[in-house]
Amino acid sequence: MFTGLIQALGTIKPLGGDSWQITCLSQSCEIVMQDLANGDSVAVDGVCLTVEKVLKNGFIATASPETLRRTTLGDERSPQKYVNLETSLRVGSKVGGHFVMGHVDGVGQMLAAEQTATSWEMTFTAPEAIARYIVPKGSIAVNGISLTVAAYEPELSQFTVAVIPLTYAETNLRYLTPGDVVNLEGDILGKYVEKFTSPTNQHSKEEITPTFLAEHGYL
């Protein structure tokens, strides 16, 4: 589990097969590399990958066929110039973004980026598998970055986020151009709400009470 607060930028290089080498670049690289060990989880552009070998300034990981199918790692349209890096959330750490699982739902495209007086307004497309979880002022992860939805146009399957200058400067959002693909992950809370309220769910006809939530792990 992650928070969507990016710790460093890196590069990613295929090594053949399903193996990838991720190299940390920025001055904050020590945050990622500190105590990094084999078996740890790192979000690479929002994709949860398991460290298989620790290198001096990076690590090697394997991306499964399912991961390649669902994410920009396997998308030929992806520029993959720089990737956002975040190590997994530690017990007791601050949650400054939102709960990001690192399980990418699908790929969207950046349509436009416009600088305003206080931020960058960036618009992305979202496939239906993700769009149904988007709500204004709700959370969404774009390339692993926790962002707040400023506007959502369901008829166009697109949404807009306002990105503060710090986030824009320290993530790979600043390198995106119209048409570039990005990894998208919907809010996990929305997915559970959908599950419990779906007409096909055996519990959907039950009243959602504190007792019901407690029985299903919401304490």
Rank of each mutant, 00 (worst) to 15 (best):
V181Y: 10
R90W: 13
R69A: 15
G16E: 06
H98E: 10
L176K: 04
A126V: 03
F2Q: 01
N172V: 04
E153Q: 11
L219P: 15
M33V: 06
G39Q: 07
G190P: 11
L219R: 14
S157T: 08
L176H: 02
G10H: 00
T62G: 03
S146A: 11
L184M: 07
S19F: 12
C24I: 07
D75S: 13
T197R: 11
P79T: 12
M122D: 04
M122P: 05
R77E: 09
R77T: 05
D75I: 09
I188T: 08
T116K: 13
L147F: 06
S28D: 02
H98R: 12
A141G: 02
G46E: 02
E185C: 12
G179I: 14
L219F: 15
R77D: 08
S198D: 15
L213R: 06
P79N: 13
Q158H: 07
Q158I: 01
A113C: 07
K191C: 05
E30F: 09
V163C: 07
A37R: 10
F196Q: 02
T177S: 10
T23S: 15
I12V: 06
K56A: 14
T209E: 04
S88R: 01
S198H: 14
G108K: 04
A151M: 03
T3M: 03
P199E: 10
E194K: 10
L85A: 03
S19L: 15
D45Y: 07
F2A: 02
K56Q: 11
Y192H: 15
L111P: 06
R174I: 05
S19W: 11
S157L: 14
D45G: 13
S64I: 14
E185L: 10
G46V: 00
E170W: 07
S41Q: 08
P136L: 01
G190D: 09
I188W: 05
Y175G: 13
V135G: 03
V47Y: 07
R70D: 05
N172F: 02
S157F: 12
L166D: 12
A8T: 01
D45W: 05
S26E: 10
V95T: 01
G106R: 01
F212G: 14
C48Y: 04
A126F: 06
Q109D: 11
T209H: 03
G186M: 03
G106V: 01
Q80P: 09
K81R: 11
T118Y: 12
P199T: 10
T160I: 00
Q27K: 13
G17F: 00
R90F: 12
H98N: 12
I164V: 15
S64N: 11
F59C: 07
I12S: 02
A169V: 07
F159L: 01
G4M: 02
L213G: 09
W120F: 15
E114Y: 07
H103W: 03
Y168H: 15
R77K: 11
G179K: 15
Q115P: 06
P136I: 00
V83D: 12
H216K: 12
F196M: 06
